[in-house]
Amino acid sequence: MRAKRVWSALGRSWLVLSTVLVVAVLVLFLVHIARQGWQVMGWEFLTDRPRRGMTQGGIFPAIAGTALVSLLTVVFSLPLGVGAAIYLTEYAPDNRATRWIRLAIRNLSGVPSIVYGLFGVVLFVDLLGLGTSLLSAGLTLGLLTLPWIITASEEALKSVPRAYRDGALALGATRWQAVRTVVLPPALPGILTGAILGLSRAAGETAPILFTGVAFFLPFAPTSLSDQFMALPYHLYILSTQHHSLEKVRPIAYGTALVLVGLVFTLNLTAFAVRSRMRRRLETAR
């Protein structure tokens, strides 16, 4: 009887300890980055370009590049992803072809990001002749975020009660009319959540843009789709491994990490807020 109690206590402390450990590590990492990064933070850091071999100045071109490439990503993947989600929830018959689509989506979400990068090099940079550019990188990241957008949109569409559709169809609406006027509006916040999470993923990815458009150093933000661009994650990679005087640029590296983490967390918290508001609204609707 006592052995039983000892085992049970040991086991439960394993659960609690692993949770505490994970949370503690996360908090320590973030506090470390925040404290070190804060030292260089300021208006100039956010709005100036890198100066003196990146040892001084700011990271504005990288911020602008990341913002543009992430927006471009969502411009590509959102219509395609929402279209696919509508097809899967509202139209697709339950047959072998549909199962293939679902299998493909699940597998795409497990494809390593560097493999997307290779695919982007062959298809967009070489075959379609887009070169290493903002456009190529945005398209590559668009494909990478596609499965995530589809999954999020599908969940949002599924959460709309069946009765909505039945009501619209009973009133004589065609299928597309029912989707457009009755099903899509309540699903929009959920789709928006997916889009924001897609933005956040695109902002943090490095491997897919490595060979499709990101540049080591550019003094300005890109002005056209065929320009190369700087990006926050790539800038952090350069500053922490490729620079000739790593110690000198370390404060700027911390600052870049802080901006990147801050950006990604803000996007994620926004997505959480949208989602929980939507849940509450759907619950009161029922």
């Binding site: 279209g83 696919a84 139209y91 697709a92 689509i101 493909a104 795409l108 494809v111 493999v115 589809i150």
Partner: peptide, 15 residues
């Protein structure tokens, strides 16, 4: 919409 749906299969096959 069906085309959007089949894009995923195309991308996977394309890779």
């Amino acid at each position: 919409l069906a085309l959007c749906g089949y894009t995923s299969v195309l991308v996977l096959a394309g890779i």
